[in-house]
Design a protein around this nucleic acid. Structure first.
Lengths: 239, 239
DNA sequence: CGGCTGTTTGAATAGACTCAAAAACTGTGG
DNA sequence: CCACAGTTTTTGAGTCTATTCAAACAGCCG
């Protein structure tokens, strides 16, 4: 799990620290199966979770039952540090794979931050990074074609997943999503996602079928997704 | 400027505190005119700003020159607490009105948070609230019709602006935006924004013309925007 | 093998976009 | 108070992307 610091920040030591602080003060451990909700929309949310193992996603529900996927979180992520305002979560968190989480009561944060003053700033850093990621996704969805949105999402997930297992070198991976997930994350119908994926396969860019993703032509994919290198770099951060 | 705490959180005292801490440690004051950049995309960003007076917006630029407005900030907001990773800002911040800001060097944060351990958590709270706001905007843009997106944006801005001057009671206000700004924020062309605004006026919902917004029928507006009451409440938070 | 979830395909529709031009409004200076 | 220059808003016609609805097909797991 060796990881080199990205740029000037050199912030990894803190990321490790917050994980170990949560580890040291955790009051519970939660194991969930794929498809199960860790937090359902409307649940009381007085707990912070540290995702030890697995993939989960954050989602909101609309009046008419449609689902918007807001964020995919990989192991190492800190979840549920939102609340602050209301006592119930507006969003849900659902497992994509079998996952394990450690729980920390929200009210222990303030005393904790007295002993470890860096904890607060580190949480701020994590939240700010999420915010930036969300800004990027917002831009992608607001301004991009369907092809670009799908390419961007798959590239993001590929890069972030790869960063966790750097020993892996192949352009092939298990991505625990359905086309419906992709649609809910990009704001497209799953039918249209399917058509876009077909086109991407026919064009020799990538192949996604039953949760198996193959990058056929990395350069073309990056060009299709129309990513700034700066962005790709920020995806390498721990989440 | 009396403000009652929203729900269980009762967090306002902290919000005041961070402002006063920045006030006490500020190293500079910056006045800008409408249309001027406070931070241009690509600028080095080693400074945190506290917006004392005015409206500003956060934006990103795409390869092809299009602009995506990410967030509108009102007086009281804390800006530029992102960076952390790279030394240059991916985003720009531009003034919508004449504005005044106080500046705080980013590197004084860590020592500051040692003296005031709450500062870190408070910054985390602010960033998390921004993140939540961005999640809502993301959902709006990804899933909503043009009519809904425009209604939602105008309602959000109306509510947030009203919360700052509670003495105001009229359904009429000065909103320092052009239809182009609305388009860049909602991911629509300004031409189409115009058509949507016409329809909203013809339907007696609202009237927006040359930076003057009139809410004609608040209930219809809320229904058109399809907002959960919970959301509207969270917009009342200080920004 | 059978049931279920997930994927693929087709035809018709609708919502938003492009390009282009004209009209309305603002603020400024005489 | 009026005229001017520059923005901002409005309107029109044609196009295209993504949607809807519906049905068939493929792969996975028990």
């Amino acid at each position: 799990m060796a990881r080199r610091g990205g740029g000037e920040g050199l912030d990894e030591p803190w990321a490790l620290e917050i994980a170990s602080v949560i580890a040291g003060h955790r009051v519970g451990e939660k194991d969930v199966r794929a498809g199960q909700d860790i937090i359902a929309p409307g649940d009381p949310c007085d707990t912070i979770y540290h995702l030890v193992r697995g993939w989960v996603f954050l989602y909101g529900l609309l009046q008419d039952g449609r689902r918007q996927i807001l964020h995919f979180a990989l192991s190492g992520a800190v979840l549920g540090a939102d609340l602050a305002d209301s006592g119930t979560s507006t969003y849900g968190v659902q497992a994509l794979t079998e996952s394990r989480l450690w729980a920390l009561p929200h009210k222990s944060l303030r005393p904790l931050s007295r002993d470890h003053p860096e904890i607060g700033l580190e949480l701020a850093r994590l939240a700010a990074r999420d915010r930036t990621l969300t800004y990027d996704r917002l831009t992608s969805i607001a301004q991009g074609s369907a092809r670009k949105r799908v390419a961007q999402l798959l590239l993001e997930l590929f890069v972030r997943a790869r960063a966790q297992w750097p020993e892996q070198r192949r352009q092939k991976m298990h991505l625990p999503l359905t086309q419906e997930h992709i649609g809910d994350a990009t704001g497209l119908t799953s039918v249209h996602v399917n058509r876009v994926l077909s086109a991407l396969r026919d064009d020799g860019v990538l192949h996604f079928h039953y949760r198996r993703l193959t990058i056929l032509d990395p350069d073309r994919l990056v060009k299709t997704a129309d990513i700034e290198p700066r962005l790709a770099r920020s995806w390498l951060g721990r989440h």
